[in-house]
């Protein structure tokens, strides 16, 4: 195996082990799982929406929210624990480049969030499938209802959510490479996630004609620097088929996510290279 890849994977491995031992991870995982499972009992509050859609929105909403919290707080914590405890001194005095260290942190955190997404999506998929089977068995056979739950869509959703969290991790690592304190990294990381969720507003405004070149330039920069995190939120469309999503659109989202991920990791590595430990 390539020596650089081997070093990166060892950093990832230890980062993963450190993360899964944290109570914060276990707490958020249990909380999110409870939210997904409780979505069945909240169905009476569906406000006139389709019941399965309500369950999907509620459960996947919890996954999006707690996944983002975990991506921001856990990533910053994993980075700053190495800096503050000075384990980074021991590691970076070895033939390990700063980029390998940062990439190792990225893959370790991303693997943890992969476990988080897979566990919650599996639970949510089971809840949706079971409730759908229950509803179909209660329905009038003459209505000839067809199941809407789509396992392939669920797998695509897992992939997209994992990628979305990967983009968030890469942004938080870039901020951490620059930040002096854990608190700064968490606050700015959280703001970046909110900005990413609202990026479509800037995109929308950019498409409208404006007289101010400065405003147009601001929008142009904003829409390119900040990733559109909303584009990954295709939960009910993919899982329940509530709207058509063609493969080309999913591919475009994946390419966009990977491009942002690579760009932020490159930027983070360049910043971290100059940091004094």
């Amino acid at each position: 195996m390539n020596a650089s890849l081997r070093r990166t994977l060892w950093i990832s491995r230890i980062t993963f082990l450190e993360a899964v031992r944290q109570r914060f991870f276990a707490f958020l995982l249990v909380l999110s799982a409870a939210m997904v499972l409780s979505s069945v009992s909240f169905r009476v509050f569906d406000f006139g929406h389709g019941e399965l859609k309500f369950i999907a929105d509620f459960g996947f909403g919890g996954m999006f929210f707690f996944g983002s919290v975990l991506a921001v707080v856990m990533t910053a914590q994993l980075f700053f624990s190495e800096i503050d405890n000075k384990t980074a001194l021991t590691l970076l005095a070895k033939p390990l480049s700063r980029a390998e260290f940062l990439l190792g942190k990225f893959f370790g955190a991303w693997a943890v969030l992969g476990v988080f997404v897979v566990v919650l999506a599996s639970l949510q998929g089971t809840v949706l499938w079971a409730r759908e089977q229950e509803l179909l068995s209660l329905a009038d056979p003459a209505a000839k209802l067809t199941p809407s739950f789509n396992l392939e869509g669920l797998l695509q959703l897992v992939l997209l959510q994992w990628l979305r969290l990967g983009v968030v991790i890469s942004i938080v690592l870039t901020i951490s490479a620059l930040a002096r304190t854990f608190l700064f990294a968490v606050v700015v990381g959280a703001l970046a996630v909110v900005a990413g969720q609202l990026q479509w507003i800037a995109q929308d405004a950019f498409l409208r004609p404006t007289d101010s070149q400065l405003y147009a330039a601001f929008l142009w920069v904003s829409t390119r620097v900040i990733p559109n995190l909303q584009q990954f939120n295709l939960a009910d469309a993919l899982v329940l088929g509530s709207a058509g999503v063609d493969d080309g659109a999913i591919l475009a989202v994946v390419i966009s996510g990977l491009a942002y991920l690579l760009a932020y990791l490159t930027l983070g590595s360049l910043i971290f290279r100059r940091r004094e430990i």
Partner: peptide, 13 residues
Amino acid sequence: GFLPEAPYFHKFL
């Protein structure tokens, strides 16, 4: 090889 001052290592290892 380097041993830093007051070394701290991952306690779970």
